[in-house]
Design a protein around this nucleic acid. Structure first.
Ligand code: SF4
Ligand code: SF4
Lengths: 138, 138
DNA sequence: GGTAAAAAAGACAAAAACGGTCTTAAAGGG
DNA sequence: CCCTTTAAGACCGTTTTTGTCTTTTTTACC
């Protein structure tokens, strides 16, 4: 239940690898893919979506590649996860569309809201800097 | 991300409906299905798996139906969810098989473990009695 | 015993999500 | 112009989800 997809796992591995590089260094997606054990074309797709959101910057052509879009300390794990998996929604009644009509009187609904908040808070509390430097964030 | 399936949602709705009945009363799956807005045959499957785990008791034939297998206060939301969705595994490295080989040195792994523990704790803290009686459990 | 009422069990299947690949285009360096 | 590298999007096989349908078994009641 509630399992991160491979896309999400790959996304984290890939961007954490970038965060471990010296700031400003441009890295090839092929290098990241090999180092992290992620299928290259799949990782390329993931990085493209990161680029759209500004999480990473990209350069094309010879000498191109990827690097973080802002300092590792300013990127949270939540931002990374939500970039590829969408918002954290433990149950559909927490999304705008998924209203089941019972939300107001439902006694279960607040439980899911609480879980949503807890997960979000944990992921908000971890930055790429923490992950890259191996900080004991717990 | 991390969304409860419809099966899980239906399971909760169905068993909470049972928990709202006066103890000992036998209820038809057709009644539960109608009251909760769940497809009857699907709910029947769910209740069958509940029965195997002892979460509910069932009686066949005329006058048959379902009732809780033990007092509502002794059934947690976690037990219900895990009965139909399996264990709470936010990332595959938390399952026995899903070992990615980096678990020991990975800095992300502890984050998922923490999330797993938090979700489990929240769901452990809510019983069917709470849900049936509308207790403000948060 | 016969019949009707229910759950149990399991096969079946459409639709969606997942986990990628492949091709083509665009941009940049030399 | 040619090579490298990312961008964009079509495509596709597999698995999971979300059920349905049929048959069997159990039980109550007449
Ligand atoms: S938890 Fe309650 S509000 Fe949310 S989908 Fe289920 S019944 Fe509806
Ligand atoms: S979080 Fe770390 S240990 Fe878990 S699957 Fe990802 S790389 Fe492996």
């Amino acid at each position: 239940m509630m399992e991160l997809t491979r896309k999400g796992e790959y996304a984290i591995r890939g961007i954490v690898y970038l965060a471990k590089q010296s700031p400003g260094k441009v890295i090839l997606v092929s290098e990241v893919a090999e180092a992290t054990g992620v299928p290259q074309t799949f990782l390329a797709k993931i990085f493209q979506s990161f680029a759209k959101l500004g999480l990473v910057n990209s350069f094309r052509g010879t000498g191109g590649g990827f690097l973080l879009g802002r300092p590792a300390a300013k990127i949270t794990l939540r931002q990374v996860v939500e970039a590829v998996e969408g918002p954290i929604i433990p149950n559909r009644c927490l999304s705008d569309e998924g209203n089941c009509g019972r939300t107001s009187e439902c006694t279960v609904h607040p439980v899911w809201r609480r879980i949503q908040e807890e997960i979000a808070a944990i992921l908000d509390g971890v930055t790429l800097e923490d992950l890259a430097k191996g900080k004991k964030s717990l």
